[in-house]
Nucleic acid binder design. Structure first.
Lengths: 142, 142
DNA sequence: CCGGATCCCCTGAGATACTG
DNA sequence: CAGTATCTCAGGGGATCCGG
């Protein structure tokens, strides 16, 4: 192990503390796809709701356009996070369900959700403080 | 705890399994901000690199425009995830460092990184399979 | 010379209408 | 009902300019 650069900033070593730069690129690409607002909300909604239909899913997610819903679902399907089942009936029926891979990601993301719940007050305070400091800076720039 | 609706789709209950809808809205808003590609990459870079300067940070993150770097950093600062220190020197020097809150988020997000590393092969396979099925569907639509 | 603000351009997200 | 097609416009990327 020639390259054992120790994380200087913490004890919980960075997970992508790879020797191989290629692997890091791959992982970053994946993160770039899953670390997305709609992806996460859809993931969570399906985790809670199980097997859901298109419109139903859209309503539960809330505030998402059909286009983004379709696009994000396709991408998630392509990445193997969920399965898309089309029933050849009229009116059409399509439902979505997480795969094992998707549920694993949901579990992994659980920590972020807990973080958000736990520290929401701190975040709210930080925002207020930031706004006030920004306003204050305008009064006394010198 | 009057409302103990059990998650029907899994044993690891959904983290935002709230009774209070208002709380859910707040948490979702936070998720919407932190579940962002650049936010996560910057977070991780700072976790690994400790205290970093603007340009340095941009290079380590890779592929980010100055505008997005500035904007994302400001937002993260506003949310209390990192501190921005300006040294009144010439040439200017500004560095960024995670706060406790930011490091906590980084820890929380660690699971997602591990997930990406662990399942990257499955994801790659899923993508290939999806592409092939999509192409195949064009040959035999009937 | 660094951090970042500004401008311009183009992708990509939102809203609406239409189709199988 | 579940999309696709179209339009519009905000938002992101790139280059340039600026203040310290």
């Amino acid at each position: 192990m020639t390259n054992e650069k120790v994380g200087s900033a913490g004890d919980h070593v960075a997970p992508s503390d790879q020797t191989d730069p290629e692997l890091d690129v791959l992982v970053r690409e994946i993160i770039g796809r899953v670390a997305d607002k709609w992806t996460m909300l859809i993931l969570e909604t399906l985790e809670e709701g199980g097997r859901l239909r298109f419109t139903q899913l859209g309503e539960l997610v809330g505030g998402i356009s059909q286009k983004m819903l379709t696009k994000t679902l396709r991408q998630m399907e392509a990445d193997g996070l969920l399965t898309r089942t089309v029933y050849p009936v009229i009116p059409p029926k399509v439902d979505y369900e997480l795969t094992e891979l998707g549920r694993n990601l949901s579990s992994a993301f659980c920590g972020v959700w807990l973080w958000a719940e736990r520290y929401r007050e701190d975040i709210a305070r930080a925002r207020q403080s930031f706004t006030q400091r920004a306003e204050h800076a305008r009064d006394k720039p010198a």
